[in-house]
Amino acid sequence: MAEKLLEVTDLCKYFELKRGLKGTQVVKAVDHVSFEIAKGETLGLVGESGCGKSSLGRTLLRIYEPTAGEILYCGKDLARLSRRGFLPYRRKIQMIFQDPYASLNPRLTVGEIIGEGMQIHKLCTKAQATRRVQELLELVGLKPDHIRRYPHEFSGGQRQRICIARTLSLDPEFIVCDEPISALDVSIQAQVINLLELIQKERGISYLFIAHDLGMVKHISHRIGVMYLGHMVETGPSNDVYHDPLHPYTRALLSAEPIPDPRAAHLKKRILLEGEIPSPIHPPKGCPFVTRCPYAMEVCAAIQPPSFELENRKVSCFLYEQWRIRERGGKGLASLPQKAPAQPPANA
């Protein structure tokens, strides 16, 4: 594997909710999440709404202060830096936001928006900045003379290009893309994705690509991480995760993805999850997925599964502890239970 750029260990972000007389309740938006990203690599992050994907991305950038854990960036722990100490890293770590309508200040011109970062970090003089902004506009496929326009004069896709130009103005090494295409038309999504891929190829930037469009994530990511209720339940190379999901939640998630070919879609069996996603205020005591998991065992309700390593993949599920034991007995992945056990533990 290439050189590690980012290594996150046991990152937590808890939000405190004040509920009057009931005292304080804690929402564990990100709970002991660990993963790593290599230079020039894209880690796709999937999971349903409210599972903590965006919170994780924002915590990495210290938009939210991390509650606990380590964010090692090139060997330096970003979680422990002061705000001033973090400033040099702001140049290297950037973010593209979900809503290109909300992430551009409507009162500033495109030139001011893209040039602001360079001004803050004193990267160049004013005249140079104008030139550089124009170069960036061309790079993302806009015209240099758009520099004096306001964001509202552009369409959604063009606005997202402006956002990309803004992040590129600082020449970052790592970009958190927080659902950068979900607010765009399908026809525009491909354009933006291609642009992101092109930039990665040219500059060797790493991405944390947050999305819920599985097909798109598989397309752009080298590796995929799956989140559920604040936990990272599975990570691995994107092809492996996509074609051979290990964690029961990943299986259900992938089976829910629509297939463009209706004949093929007919053949596919969907795994329907029962019940609702538990409230992150009262998560299950053991495995976060235990309330909906068709394979739930007694141990799942009691203990949070640690992360088990299988070749180049990691999965937090006790099924794979057993698998490891069996492996010693000579059985492979095929020994995995493909169907729910005959008697799933009632109300686990």
Binding site: M95, F97, L104, N105, H121, L170
Partner: peptide, 23 residues
Amino acid sequence: EFSMAALVLGAGDGRILFKHLMI
């Protein structure tokens, strides 16, 4: 999000408050 975007760019409190929010 544009206020977060300014923070991510490295803007200080005064800059965010007056240049991005107050305006």
